[in-house]
Design a protein around this nucleic acid. Structure first.
Lengths: 137, 137
DNA sequence: ATTCTACTCATACTAAAGTACGAATTCTAT
DNA sequence: ATAGAATTCGTACTTTAGTATGAGTAGAAT
């Protein structure tokens, strides 16, 4: 919001500056009008691109972040969350076992409680729901 | 790609048109220079915003849009792709069965060939890889 | 016409995933 | 210190998932 205001302010200043410039150069020669037009065009083209880039970038970043409050709300523990992320990476229980140095029954416990907390029937559904809730990306 | 070329072409045409306009109005009066500058500025500002919106939307959407060429490259058929999307929604084979009105063995066939084509060991990994390749969103 | 591909289905099997107990240990906060 | 939550593990069991193999059918392409 603030940046767009600054951008527009700079825009108005640039406009006024160009008016002054055009008034000055008009006495020198008629050919310089083309030059002014080119400058004005390129400057405002760049300004236009800049404004749009700033505003769109904000939208982009907010839609990808993890919602930590939702994780707390569902009472998903640290370990469970680790497991959830591994599942989302497409790993099997055995593979997760090797990465977290615990037995398979432990992973199964975590998975089962995750399915309960996420209200899912399968690990694939758990991943889908977790992504929908922005718990994982 | 095509749209940006068209946009730049229109931009050049607009530039030339404004040059002609400036040459004509210069004989009428000196005050019209300000008007021309304003027109040029606003037009190119809008053009700048437009170009950026299109290019950014493409970046944004390419990260979300499906890469059909990749699907062809991997030789994933229509039916297989349907199954892949259902898997990504977290559905079980039985649930997919009910949605596509085929037997479970058919779904299993599709899943198996999908795992081969996506070089995955599990359905969860297939989903992860498919998302990475932008085959699904 | 027939070759090729996609889609379909079945059976039998192995492997993974998930459930349902119960229980020990560690960590944390009061 | 101790209650409570988190983490860990085990066993026995049921349910899905996935593999292997073979085969029938319909549609598109040559």
């Amino acid at each position: 919001m603030k940046k767009t205001i600054i951008a527009f302010s700079l825009l108005i200043i640039a406009l006024l500056a160009l008016f002054q410039l055009s008034k000055y150069t008009i006495f020198i020669g008629k050919t310089s009008v083309e030059l002014i037009t080119t400058i004005v065009a390129t400057v405002f083209l760049i300004v236009g691109i800049y404004i749009n880039k700033k505003t769109l970038h904000k939208e982009k970043s907010t839609t990808q972040k993890v919602d930590h409050s939702k994780i707390e709300e569902l009472q998903i523990s640290k370990r469970e969350y680790e497991v959830l992320r591994k599942i989302s990476d497409g790993l099997s229980n055995k593979e997760i076992t090797e990465m977290l140095f615990v037995s398979e029954s432990t992973i199964k416990s975590h998975v089962s409680s995750l399915l309960l907390k996420l209200n899912a029937k399968r690990r694939t559904q758990a991943v889908q729901k977790a992504k929908e809730m922005h718990i994982i990306d």
